[in-house]
Design a protein around this nucleic acid. Structure first.
Lengths: 255, 255
DNA sequence: CTATCTTTGTGCACGCGTTCACAAAGACAT
DNA sequence: ATGTCTTTGTGAACGCGTGCACAAAGATAG
């Protein structure tokens, strides 16, 4: 086991690069599909193309997990499914709460991909008293007042925030105070959290804006350069229309 | 304008790094908030903290756009909002179609962040005939048969796919054939597209799995290493439970 | 048992992105 | 006009991630 007493005791040589971790779910999905078709083994080449990456990258990624392949043959599908699942922590049950049950929250609650990956929706929480008790995806909506108790009772360590931007930080603070240490944030805000808490952000608007950039670039190339006047007087900012009264409200609000 | 005749004619020195492009929407949001509060100028330090990045990175990012700041003072908020908007292509109107109007599709249709950024939902499209005509977010759901005509009539170049995984590739192919060159994909599948077409992927399940990985790592450190048996016989794969009949179905299906 | 053939695992080099640290630029006071 | 003080813009170093290319490993056939 080669101790190697650094300041980071446990994880030892488990220095799996973040980029690799982000791809493991991709491999896992491809492998699961193969498993369902009862395919016994895959080569790095096949699996890579199914996952949409190149084979060298895939092999290097797997090398961080250990030597699970057989030269001349490939990888054992079932075995690899298990190893990746274990590495990602999907062999255990992860209770999650979803806060903010608007369209998006409801969509998340109904998402089949959660249950099949070891995630269990422990509760749906919303700030609107009128929503309380309504059933969504087979679960009753609980009121925000109960948040702390729910987290405690179910030993929830992962929270999903699908509230409007304005409510997100407060919800985040309460989740963290109650013991949540991982947050998936759909609200268009920068959340500030103490050290030791992980936040991942999904922002629909940002993705579209990135697409628009490339779309514009493509269009600009077509008409041979000179896209727009590059310099204009500093005063000439006539974006008079306000960006909308909604402070970047996400999909839907609780009320 | 310093021609510089490379094989990429138009964009010239517009070599804005991808990582920078991905952050521009973040800055834009922070700046918009400042603009609404009528703040005239910001320093890189203030803006960086509002956007959740460090100031050196922000300054370097802005340096790719040009010298829009004033030393000793900071950046003019309104001017910067305009410049970034223009760079991202948000000063023009982008008609988008959303295909697959389940919970997620409906959530996207209702998303306020689109309209306020120059994106206009041109149409909602679903494969289920029973859904056709129903109103969602003030728009009638159209049937998939009309897809090509809708793209053509509205000059749509950006498509959003919110269908089940099984339908995604076919929808994608039709969108591309009809002229769409940018796709935002919410279905948990790898889409294959011809060169010149951009695809961005948003996968809810993957984000949660990445969180689970870190969560497990944190838990493992707490109990001082030795998380789980690292080696076990290759045969000992007893993940008997099937990963679920759903082939990783996204939020909701059309029917 | 030996030879051949397939496919993994990885050393190495390269390029992109991040961060540091500072000189240059300008505002502002005197 | 001169000096001080703030903040930008960027050169340079560093580290991570990617992809190439090949040696090592093992399967398989004769």
């Amino acid at each position: 086991m080669a101790t190697g007493r650094t300041h980071r005791p446990a994880t030892r040589s488990r220095g799996i690069p973040e980029a690799t971790v982000a791809r493991l779910p991709l491999y896992l999905r491809a492998l699961t599909a193969l498993s369902e078709r009862s395919v016994p083994t895959v080569s790095s080449e096949e699996l890579a193309s199914a996952a949409g990456v190149n084979s060298a990258k895939l092999r290097k990624d797997f090398s961080y997990l250990g030597s699970y392949g057989t030269r001349g043959v490939g990888y054992d599908v079932e075995y690899l499914v298990y190893q990746i699942s274990r590495e990602l922590g999907l062999t255990q049950d992860w209770p999650v709460v979803i806060v903010g049950i608007g369209n998006l929250g409801a969509a998340l609650a109904n998402y089949g991909g959660f249950a099949s990956r070891g995630f269990r929706v422990a509760a749906l929480i919303d700030a609107d008293p009128a929503q309380a008790g309504k059933m969504v995806a087979g679960l009753p909506i609980r009121h925000t007042d109960e948040l702390e108790a729910i987290i405690e009772d179910n030993q929830v360590s992962i929270g999903v925030i699908a509230t409007p931007a304005g409510a997100a930080q407060e919800v985040c603070d309460r989740l963290v105070a109650a013991g949540v240490t991982s947050i998936l944030n759909f609200a268009p805000t920068v959340l500030s959290v103490p050290d030791g808490v992980d936040v991942r952000k999904v922002d629909l608007s940002i993705e579209l804006q990135i697409l628009a950039f490339h779309e514009q670039r493509k269009a600009g190339e077509d008409l041979g350069g000179a896209v727009a006047p590059t310099s204009l007087p500093k005063a000439a900012v006539d974006r008079s229309e306000r960006p909308g009264p909604d402070g970047d409200v996400p999909v839907v609000m609780p009320a």
